[in-house]
Design a protein around this nucleic acid. Structure first.
Lengths: 120, 120
DNA sequence: GCAATATATTCCTATATCGGAATATATTCT
DNA sequence: AGAATATATTCCGATATAGGAATATATTGC
């Protein structure tokens, strides 16, 4: 059966590290032209445009034409589904009484992940 | 330039809808054998095993051998980076005074996303 | 040891995806 | 109109990824 794309999904949209970078640039709520974003990232313009397009399809950004510029804007509300989803697990680290224990577990986990990566 | 995989990243791990389903099964904090997960999802066992492997590489689940079973367990703490990241945008919907306006915006956004998907 | 069960792995195919390069399409300026 | 600028699109090659099918690898029970 044909593999289906879920790239228009918010979760997939923000899965790309570069796209999270783009979001970071827009995080102050200001509008940015593509070129401004390009300047703030070490990335070629076409690649940035493509990522912006992906984000737009997922509703994470919106565009308005202004003169010869296309101004991109973060639509933070589109990220709410992610927040809602992950918030369901919040209790696992918030209700942890022993902070030191938690830190230790996080470190241990990171170690595990690193090992797995190497093993791969 | 060789494209690099970021699949061991938590964000990518949970980008896959099927993997979020797996996480949903484990969300009660209980341990589950692979077969139990297979039963709760409409998915073949090898596919489930592969997704579990991906989640494990990202640290989202851990395994312990118990008898002939491999018991998988959610490591919710691994999801904290996602929570932390998205929490940075919380104010965009929490500090919204007019709830009705917010709902309307969300609807409008969903409409936009739908249109974009069709356009594609 | 052998059958049964549980799980992982390998092989395969179709498709998705990223980024580079080149090019196309506006839009503004002179 | 023609040059300059901004941005998108197309084409391409390399790689990633999902899932099916078949198979391999435990582990348990007899």
């Amino acid at each position: 059966m044909t593999r289906r794309s879920h790239s228009a999904d918010v979760f997939s949209a923000i899965a790309e590290p570069r796209r999270r970078e783009v979001v970071a640039v827009l995080a102050d709520g200001q509008e940015y032209a593509v070129n401004e974003i390009v300047l703030r990232m070490k990335m070629a313009q076409p690649a940035v445009s493509k990522h912006l397009n992906a984000l737009r399809k997922a509703g994470v950004v919106t565009v308005v034409k202004r003169g010869q510029h296309r101004m991109y804007r973060l639509e933070a509300l589109a990220l709410k589904p992610v927040h809602d989803w992950v918030r369901g697990f919040e209790r696992y680290w918030t209700h942890q009484v022993d902070q030191i224990k938690q830190r230790a577990e996080q470190k241990a986990l990171e170690r595990l992940i690193r090992l797995d990566k190497d093993k791969q």
